[in-house]
Design a protein around this nucleic acid. Structure first.
Length: 660
DNA sequence: ATTAGGG
DNA sequence: CCCTAAT
């Protein structure tokens, strides 16, 4: 079955490295404007455009305190609006340790593709806060950018533009164009200012789209943190061929616009987002369903071990996502498109800075400004520069994912499959949750069938959540529910040592399918909030995905524990009786060929534990009790094959001896 | 890719 | 289950 679901992602704390200074932003801005106008740009690209384009100059990263989460007053043009609640997360730009920042920016100028507009002005940009992304199943990227701040540098004059964009087109009920409209206005206004010179270094504007009421998550300022989104390039073809097919999704109803809490010295210009943003969606259907992913060129960045880790568990899941298949470890410039542009030496992949961004509180504003100003003028290597941009992504949608999973697979394997697919895109650090009909499915051991995920009707209500890996899921632990699918048993030659009757009786239930559990969905769902993309405990969450250590552990999290069911044990025993203890691959093929989550290593390990279990007293055994009869067979088979092995060795020795 | 073992 | 050395 093929699941095509949208991923509603809920975590925060991603860091996005900043982009090196680039000279070509005017073009980007125009493009941005145009794209927005055309509504052909999905939020994600919008983000890419805004962020990538605007982030270019770290040096002049000026940062504003915007309170994306709170509904704020409308900021009139040329008026300064001071937002009292600065608790929101302003960004802090800090020098980056070059050594620790080996990641490149994920934001690129993809949106600028093909645009050869004149680049007349230089612009520095800085994304201060990204609220989130939403990527819909049908193909698009959309993003909610909570607060994007950019600084435009015009000669010695700098204009800071602060943009708050939230997700999709945020329009009033009827006008789809308001979004673009507003942006347009803003742009026009900014440009006007630029022209008039009215914009001083503290002029900022804000584009506000639908806002999130939740406070932004702060990102840890650990410079060594990992940057999930960062990376080199990802194949250009990763992106939809035609952006005409992108849709803007407006998913929030939070109509409130945010305010800019900027320093009073700044002139602010705010575009007030239209109040009610309905749940409407403005969309253009994506024509091409499949994105192409070009094979990844060897960038030699992945060590063997890394690769291995990435692929380690793939066998168990069938993930049909090209990006994953072809470029397993995509944690590189996600937004990089085939833009060969870079007309004036703008952001090229090489330009991407490796520094990371650090998130900070509002009070960091001053420091940020300082930092940025201090760097201003250092045209040189972005490498040396240490500005950081922090982005917090609350939610986003992932482009179409095609995941093929057997109905007999467990929820856990489904999660892993999704996780792998998502990880390929995001770079890991997240945990995938499954939501069905509004309820979180917690039992990873249940099969999809048992959970009801196989029905189309229910499929509609199937959703996934991405959560930070860190807060170890307060798993109720219990729910042993060993309902694994009985493996196919080998129906073949009679085992040598097992009494016939035992064999028959034990294999009587072979092939039986566990009755679908009625309450497949765990009703003990903690709270509906789980579905809410925004984590409450921002602080806690924010730090998690950023741990550098996580690089490996995050990407390849430990496989879900899946205790062997009795029927599986039975199948294993039977197979080993027949094949012996040294042919795990054959055992796998024979008895667990359709159990994707059981590798031959697993089987070997299980046999090892079975032998151990059989040797200890029943009181010492844990977990689901294994029938003594099976354990007896385990010991018998173990002894038998051990003996066989000795015999073979003796024989070989004799042959050798004779030869000599 | 498998096997064998230690952790 | 994970990790690895050795095949």
């Amino acid at each position: 079955m093929v699941l095509q679901k949208r991923l509603d992602y809920g975590f925060s704390g991603f860091q996005v490295p900043d982009v090196p200074r680039s000279t070509r932003s005017a073009r980007g801005r125009r493009l941005f404007k145009r794209k927005v106008e055309d509504r052909q740009m999905c939020a994600f690209e919008l983000l890419a455009t805004v962020a990538g384009d605007l982030l270019q100059e770290r040096d002049s990263c000026v940062h504003s305190n915007a309170s994306p989460g709170t509904a704020g007053p409308v900021i009139e043009q040329d008026t300064v609006k001071q937002e009292p609640q600065d608790k929101e997360a302003p960004l802090k730009v800090e020098p980056c340790d070059p050594g620790s920042c080996d990641e490149s920016v994920f934001v690129s100028d993809g949106a600028l593709q093909g645009d050869n507009g004149n680049c007349t002005s230089k612009e520095s940009t800085h994304v201060s806060y990204v609220e989130g992304f939403e990527i819909a199943s049908n193909s698009d990227f959309s993003a909610k950018v909570s607060c994007v701040e950019r600084t435009k540098e015009d000669g010695n004059q700098k204009v800071n533009l602060s943009c708050k964009v939230n997700g999709s087109a945020c329009n009033e009920s009827s006008s789809k164009d308001k979004f673009s409209h507003g942006i347009e206005q803003r742009l026009a206004s900014d440009e006007q200012k630029m022209v008039n010179g009215t914009a001083q270094d503290t002029c900022s504007s804000e584009y506000v789209m639908d806002l999130d009421n939740k406070p932004p998550a702060l990102v840890s300022s650990d410079s060594s943190a990992e940057v999930p989104f960062s990376g080199d390039h990802i194949p250009c073809s990763y992106f939809p061929k035609s952006w005409d097919n992108v849709q803007l999704v407006n998913k929030d109803d939070d109509e409130n616009s945010s305010e800019c809490t900027q320093p009073s010295t700044r002139t602010m210009n705010a575009f007030r987002s239209l109040s009610r943003i309905g749940d409407r969606r403005i969309r253009k259907i994506l024509a091409s369903k499949y994105w192409k992913v070009a094979p990844r060129s060897n960038d030699g960045e992945l060590s063997n071990s890394e690769m291995r880790r990435v692929f380690h568990n793939r066998k168990g899941c069938y993930t049909r996502q090209r990006s994953q298949r072809n470029s397993p470890y995509i944690r590189r410039k996600l937004f990089k498109r085939c833009s060969k542009s870079t007309c004036d030496g703008g952001l090229s992949s090489e330009d991407i800075s490796k520094s990371l961004v650090k998130g900070v509180n509002g009070d960091g504003t001053a420091s940020v400004s300082q930092a940025s100003s201090s760097v201003v003028g250092q045209e040189a290597s972005f490498h040396s520069r240490g500005s950081h941009v922090k982005l917090s992504i609350k939610s986003f949608r992932v482009p179409e994912l095609f995941i093929e999973v057997s109905e007999m697979e467990t929820v856990g394997s489904l999660k892993r499959a999704v996780l792998e697919a998502v990880t390929a895109i995001l770079g890991g650090g997240v945990h995938v949750g499954v939501v069905l009909q509004g309820k979180k499915v917690r039992d990873d051991n249940k099969t999809l069938l048992q959970t009801g995920i196989s029905h189309h009707d229910k499929l509609e209500t199937l959703g996934f959540m991405l959560e930070p890996t860190l807060p170890p899921p307060p798993t109720p632990t219990s729910t042993p529910t060993p309902t694994s699918t009985p493996p196919a048993l080998c129906h073949e030659d009679p085992p040598h040592l097992v009494p016939r009757e035992i064999q028959n009786s034990s294999s009587s239930d072979r092939g039986s399918v566990p009755p679908p559990a009625d309450g497949s969905v765990d009703k003990t769902l903690t709270d509906s909030r789980a579905l809410v993309p925004i984590p409450t405990r921002v602080e806690a969450l924010s730090v998690v995905p950023l741990q550098r250590k996580s690089r490996q552990s995050e990407l390849v999290q430990r496989r879900m524990r899946r205790p062997f069911s009795v029927s599986e044990v039975e199948a294993l025993v039977q197979a080993v009786e027949k094949l012996g203890t040294g042919r795990w691959r054959d055992v796998k093929l024979c008895a667990f060929d359709n159990a994707k989550h059981r590798t031959y290593v697993d089987l070997k390990d299980k046999w090892k534990t079975l032998v151990h279990t059989a040797r200890i007293s029943p009181q010492q055994r844990r977990g689901e009790p294994v029938p003594q009869e099976l354990l007896d067979r385990v010991l018998a088979a173990h002894a038998y094959w051990a003996h066989q092995q000795v015999k073979v060795q003796m024989k070989q020795q004799n042959e050798q001896y004779l030869l000599i």
